[in-house]
Amino acid sequence: MASAGSSLVDRVGDEEILTGTGGVDGRGARGRQSWWWVLSLIIVFGVWQVAAWRYDSDLLMPQPVDALRALGEAVVDPIVLTNLGITVRRVLIGFVISMAIGVPVGYLMGHSPRVGEVMDPLINTFRQVPIMAWVPLSIIWFGLGDGPTIFIITFVGVFAIILSTVAGVRAIPIELFHAARSMGASRSGLFRDVVLPATVPDVVTGARLALGAAWGSVICAEFIATSAGYGYLMVRAQSMMATDRLMALMILGALVGFLIDRGLVYANRQLAKWRYLT
């Protein structure tokens, strides 16, 4: 289980390297990368445009221009912003709860092999249930509205946080504990002096994975379990056959997810500068 967790972590780590802290030729690499960005956007919009001409139906495949215009309208539409706010609030509450559970559990599991052995199978079992399969049960438990969505966000995030924290604690070389002890740290001081600083990057990585998964699943949960929020707004656009608005909302959803992720990358850089030195 730990290996599955660390492979996730590694993937995020690799991406971190790809987006570049910049080595000697960091600027060049970053410049080249932004060109690839432009190219891929051109391809996506090009294919979209061709498809729109081909099908010639605003319902099936609206013109990119129409979708972009709808996007322009959406970002100033108070209804969109209110519902986006509702969803972001749910995500933040669920995220805080999943951190409050996941980080301490992760430290306990990483610290004590016995706790790890007990929790591993539990976590692995629950993790296998597809997250959306929890939606009907969560509606029975919490009714419609905030309850089931926050439950889903918490649930989907907590595993990423636990796995990442456990992997971080287990990866600390024993010599660092020995060193701290031999320099006068008490047993209880090891957590503050070694475990905490050593695992900051892993905890933030877990937070990043959790927020990404939360943002992905909350909208889906809102299709079913609520009558407000971003997902609900998308269902409404769909039922009104406003495909251009639907696509605009998808693009806006991607942008918000992207911004959340960048925010956490930035937080990680600030909190664990030592990991990103060249």
Binding site: E175, H178, M183, G184, W274
Partner: peptide, 20 residues
């Protein structure tokens, strides 16, 4: 009776704290 600052240790891979 345990590790202590009366005995300074230099480790094989130094074991410096990378965050300091």
């Amino acid at each position: 009776e345990g590790p202590g600052p009366d005995r300074g240790v230099i480790f094989q891979d130094y074991a410096l704290f990378p965050w300091l």
